[in-house]
């Protein structure tokens, strides 16, 4: 086992880490370039509504080091990043790291809750309907289709209308307590459940037709044991691929969902930063989502190897 882990480290993980770093560097550079070509003068943004005199402008240019050549600014930016310094927010006049740190918890809660909701629903529905009668499958795939095709904000509005305004079961906005998490998590998680459910059911049904499923049935296994011990693992392989994709939609979806449900969080920070041209914050959010992507896809790659022995080594 240790030998296998060592081999894994040699073959997979090291290379993955390398590409991960490259992706992060690319994201940092891309967001830096975006900052450069963004319309408007940085000094204008920094001056904002405050007093605008040549002296103040000169002081700002000096303070932010804007008089240095662009390449030097870029390298200095990378150098600060390497030391974990994300820079200062133009608008809030606070460290970007500090801004993100205070806002990250509600977003993490929301995305984790949404992912858990989506995955659980998908697994339950797929297990309940794979290989079953036409009616059960028809209802499930219709529901999945709706969940996938309706945009999350619309799902959110419908959920709010029904469960908050009409029934009053859940708070309309805010992030106080677990009950405030239910509707946003559903709004964000339902589309995932839709796609994932279809992929899982398709995978299960394919696996149940394979010769090894016949062999397993011939051993006296119940259909349930066959699904649990054999088919589910096969169905997970495409589902894991999909998981990498939906983490991306979760971050994007969080922006809308947080705005809709009046929740604090990174999505809101990002939106305010974009509208206020607070580029250091925007860049930090881009970097953070790249980091999440890289980390998750590395983990998923390892999950792949754990699920499918054929691609190990």
């Amino acid at each position: 086992m240790t030998g296998r882990l060592a081999a894994l480290a040699r073959l997979g993980v090291v290379r993955r880490l390398g590409t991960g770093l490259a992706v992060l560097w690319a994201a940092a550079t891309a967001s830096y370039v975006a900052l450069l070509i963004a319309p408007g003068d940085t000094v204008d943004i920094l001056v904002g509504d405050g007093a605008d005199t040549p002296e103040i402008r000169a002081a700002i240019i000096k303070e932010w080091g804007l008089d240095r050549p662009e390449i030097v600014q870029y390298l200095a930016y990378l150098w600060r990043l390497l030391h974990g310094d994300l820079g200062r927010s133009y608008q809030l006049q606070r460290g970007v790291g500090e801004v993100l740190a205070t806002q990250i918890a509600p977003t993490v809660q929301l995305t984790l809750a949404a992912a858990a909701t989506g995955v659980t629903l998908a697994v339950v529905i797929a297990l309940a309907t794979a290989g079953r009668g036409r009616a059960a499958r028809g209802v499930a795939s219709a529901a999945e289709l709706v969940a996938v095709s309706v945009p999350p904000f619309l799902i959110g509005i419908v959920l709010l209308a029904v469960f908050s305004f009409t029934l009053g079961w859940f708070p309309v906005s805010g992030a106080q307590g677990p009950s405030a998490l239910v509707l946003p998590a559903l709004a964000l998680g339902l589309p995932i459940a839709g796609v994932l459910g279809q992929v899982l059911r398709g995978g299960l049904e394919r696996a149940l037709e394979q010769p090894f499923a016949v062999t397993a049935r011939a051993r006296g296994l119940t259909e349930r044991a066959l699904v649990a011990r054999h088919a589910l693992r096969h169905a997970l392989i495409p589902a894991v691929t999909l998981a990498g994709w939906f983490t991306g939609t979760l971050l994007g979806g969080a922006v809308i969902t947080e705005a809709l449900f009046g929740r604090p969080g990174l999505g809101r920070v990002a939106m305010e930063a974009v509208t206020g041209r607070d580029m250091p914050v925007v860049m930090a959010v881009v970097l953070l989502s790249a980091l999440v992507y890289v980390t998750l896809s590395t983990l998923l790659d390892l999950a792949y190897r754990a699920i499918d022995p054929r691609i190990r080594g």
Binding site: Q210, P211, T215, A218, R219, P309, R310
Partner: peptide, 27 residues
């Protein structure tokens, strides 16, 4: 189905053609 299951594997075993696909490749 229950009676069949109690027989399968216990009373009669099945060997299929190609073991590469007749054994679960993930186990």
């Amino acid at each position: 189905e229950r009676e069949w299951r109690s027989l399968r594997g216990r009373f009669a075993g099945l060997v299929l053609q190609d073991a590469l696909v007749s054994l679960d490749p993930l186990r």
